[in-house]
Design a protein around this nucleic acid. Structure first.
Lengths: 177, 177
DNA sequence: CGTATTTATTTGGCAGCCCAAACTTTTTTC
DNA sequence: GAAAAAAGTTTGGGCTGCCAAATAAATACG
């Protein structure tokens, strides 16, 4: 991804450290262990490995922080996570908890090109007047088996065309998601 | 997934065996090893594990086939794979090779609900007249940075409405993807 | 300050998966 | 049908990642 190849595990550790840095300035073994659901002893090994790769600043018994390199990698992983979760929630309309679960695993499986396509796809949905709020709501209805046969597609589209703003401004776009 | 919890690895072995069964009636250690890019010795261990879980028929030096249970599990995994790949190719418009790569990894990361949503989403795109071929092509253009500002959205949509068939028949739907 | 508590590390053991190489069984081929 | 080739298995070793328990360091507090 960023020239460094990390196991899923180490990617998760790095992401956890990033989160802890955000909320606590610094990461501690105890907190990492709790967040990852492992014992402290398991964390120490992972830290040594990450330190060996130059991704974290770590000395025994010290606080843990990301190196510049580590922050770059963690940021990339975190970006994937956020994009995927956003996609699952707003495009596939999964509930947030399930989206989070899936994103946690998918972030290790998808490469940059695939994640970038998710970004582009969301961007296109926001950009194209065809895929406006009516359409988004339509997916929810469709999923629920409502209106198996769309009674008035033309009317639905006509209405969207009428209401179509000259240019979609950001506020509108944001309100859709 | 199907009550059995398999490592990603064993899922992959099972999927490989399913493929070999399709093309060769039967799976052999050598072919499994080649397809998975491992040595033959590594395959034997995996086979013992799968046999222990009742997923394959296996005796030392014998041909390998899926049990009924194994076929069910492999089929489920394979379904995930196909759905995801299809989604990546037709919705996100990734090139087939990259789609295959990503699907191979994503199939272990996504749960049934998420995969089902991909199916529903494709179904909705096929169902809703807004998201017709013009729209699909529009994503390609949008990605390529062409028409950063859509010159005539209304005209584009109007044309789609005019050409909208009374009911999309299956042939039409299939031709879109 | 010094002990008690918390936090972190080390050690040994286990499981999953891999390879390399030796060995065994099966299949070919002459 | 026996020797050669191919296919499959076994053994030993390595790596990652986990736990449990023992140990060490750091922090808190009376």
């Amino acid at each position: 991804m960023t020239g460094i190849d990390l196991s899923e595990n180490l990617e998760d550790y790095l992401e956890t450290i990033l989160e802890l840095e955000k909320t606590h300035k610094v990461a501690r073994v105890k907190d990492i262990a709790e967040m990852r659901g492992v014992l402290r002893g398991s964390v120490t090994g992972a830290l040594k490995s990450l330190a060996g790769k130059g991704l974290i600043n770590y000395e025994p018994y010290s606080f843990i922080t990301l190196t510049k390199k580590g922050a770059a990698v963690a940021g990339e992983i975190n970006r994937r996570h956020k994009v995927i979760k956003n996609f699952l929630i707003h495009v596939l309309q999964l509930d947030p908890d399930r989206a989070e679960d899936n994103a946690c695993r998918m972030e290790h499986a998808m490469d940059r090109a695939a994640v970038d396509r998710m970004v582009a796809f969301i961007d296109y949905i926001e950009f194209c007047p065809r895929t406006d709020t009516n359409w988004v709501k339509g997916f929810a209805s469709h999923r629920h088996g409502i209106e198996k046969k769309q009674p008035d597609c033309k009317g639905c589209m006509d209405k969207s065309i009428e209401n179509q703003p000259e240019t979609k401004d950001d506020a509108l776009v944001k309100s859709r998601f």
